[in-house]
């Protein structure tokens, strides 16, 4: 399934793996997020400032991690409507450390035209830092 996009509910199989992608968790990205969107504080934009708060380094804002997960779904199904997305922040997503975004289809409701997707952000050690679920609506045609 990797690399392919889908447009209709009939294209989706239970257990399908969404193409994973490596989000931009660089300090430049969180600073850009801070300038244009918000969360422009040292905790997110400055490693030294974050360490002064007792963190191991700057962390990616939770709302940005949630945005990564939504982006992954749209990369897989560009016309999908994400009707619900729920994310649990289990551990900090550290800035300037590689993370992987993954998703797998765990329910397909062809009548409703919706799929449920498990979504996770994991670090390079494979530890889940953010997890959740999303419901996306796809075309029934």
């Amino acid at each position: 399934m990797s690399g392919k996009t889908v447009s209709a509910i009939a294209d989706v199989e239970f257990g399908a793996q969404l193409p994973s992608f490596t989000p931009d968790t660089s300090i430049a990205a969180t600073r850009r997020f801070g300038r244009h969107v918000g969360w422009n504080t040292p905790r997110f934009t400055d490693h030294e400032g974050a360490r002064k708060e007792g963190l191991p380094g700057a962390i990616v804002p939770g709302v940005m991690s949630q945005g990564f997960l939504g982006a992954m779904i749209h990369r897989w199904a560009p016309d999908a409507e994400i009707v619900a997305i729920d994310t649990v922040f289990r551990a900090p997503v550290l800035v300037d450390r590689p993370h992987t975004i993954t998703g797998v289809v765990t329910d397909v409701d062809e009548d409703a035209g919706t799929v449920e997707i498990d979504i996770t952000v994991a670090n390079e050690a494979g530890e889940t830092r953010v997890f959740g679920t999303a419901t996306a609506r796809l075309s029934k045609d």
Binding site: V104, D118, G132
Partner: peptide, 8 residues
Amino acid sequence: SDSHIVSH
């Protein structure tokens, strides 16, 4: 597993 989502 301590799974909270299906795939875990």
